[in-house]
Simulated assay, not measured.
Amino acid sequence: MSVTTQARPEAPPEPPPSDARFVIPGVALLILAALLLGFAGNLLLVGHLQHARAQQTGYAELREQLAFGTAPVGRTDIDGEVLSPGTPVALLRIGAIGLREVVFEGTTSDVLMSGPGHRRDTVLPGQAGTSVVMGRQWGYGSPFLHLDELGPGDTIEITTGQGEHTYRVTGLRRPGDPVPEPAGTGQGRLTLITATGGPYTPSGVLRVDAELTTDVFPTPARVIPTGAVGEAEDALKGDDSAWTPTLLWSQALLLAAAGVAWAHRRWGRWQAWITGVPVLGAITVALSGTLTRLLPNLL
């Protein structure tokens, strides 16, 4: 009687060693694809959600301060400390274009992600002198997208710690247009600034000038002299302080991409993507946010 022995299945062959000629370009393409997708997602979706959240929390903070009489009326808070960039200072309403936004202190690219920003070396709205407020045209909520639709006679309403203030639009200015005379003694003016150009491609600066039609409130002593703010707060300027976090997040993205490439080789395609996509997504969103800070603040 013969005994038939069953042949053992052959073990799967070992995968060939990785070829650096293909691995390195693959990792580079993976990084580039993740960065482009994250950057587009940040500008088109995540940035708008971030803006909505910042407006919600900023409005709640400003409303509480107005109720308790502690809202800022100058460049310092009730304790005498200079206001930190990003502090809510006013509520801006323009009925003609359906705008209602909390205004924050400062005009850097970082601050303008939350909403319009008050230039720190100018007076607050409602006070004697010219107050300057900047806002993005397309990104992060697009608060000033329809600013060019305003015309002479339109009304701008602003609420600050000193009360309600109403401005009347006197005109729009584009590059090359004459600059109006400075505000006289006891007069209040407002200049709204945003970018001109196509979607996410700023090419110039649009200014909307308005004059105060309600009572002029006292102006506290200046803490930041005119022109003393950094270049990052000028129109169409980026924030150079974002280079350090950009470098750190770029290194994190490089390591994450290399880890996904290694996992793809060792674990398999789907295992690598299931574990790697959330990590790559989170890092690219953070990196794209810091990259946006390097771009013009009115974008």
Rank of each mutant, 00 (worst) to 15 (best):
R207V: 01
H48I: 10
I94S: 06
L147T: 01
L236W: 12
A34R: 09
I158R: 05
V73T: 15
F104D: 03
L62R: 00
S114M: 09
R173N: 06
G58H: 00
P175I: 06
Y200W: 08
L294W: 00
A258V: 14
P12G: 13
E61G: 02
V277T: 14
G141S: 10
L112K: 06
G188A: 02
W243K: 11
R189F: 01
V82S: 13
A11P: 05
D239M: 05
L150P: 05
E14R: 11
H165K: 08
A221D: 15
Q187G: 04
L49E: 10
G198A: 15
L35I: 04
V73Y: 02
P15H: 11
P88D: 02
S18R: 15
P182W: 06
L190F: 10
A286K: 07
H264S: 13
T170K: 02
T130N: 04
H165S: 15
V46M: 10
V89C: 08
L30S: 11
F39D: 05
E181T: 13
R222W: 04
P143L: 12
A96T: 14
S142D: 13
R100W: 06
G80S: 11
R168G: 09
S114W: 05
T275E: 06
E64G: 09
E101L: 01
P296Y: 04
R222P: 03
L35D: 02
G47I: 04
R174C: 02
T159M: 10
I31L: 13
T185W: 05
V27G: 05
D209S: 09
V133D: 05
A210K: 02
G188H: 01
S131C: 14
T4K: 03
T155W: 01
G238I: 03
S114T: 02
I156N: 04
S203E: 15
I274H: 06
E14A: 14
G230Y: 06
R120N: 03
R53L: 14
G198H: 10
V89P: 02
T191V: 15
V169D: 04
T76L: 08
R174V: 04
T292K: 00
G129C: 09
L206T: 07
V179M: 14
A232E: 09
E64F: 03
E105W: 04
L280H: 10
G117H: 01
E164I: 05
Q50W: 07
R75Y: 00
W270E: 08
T159L: 12
P199H: 07
P125F: 07
L36N: 05
G106C: 10
T57H: 00
E231D: 10
Q127A: 12
R168I: 13
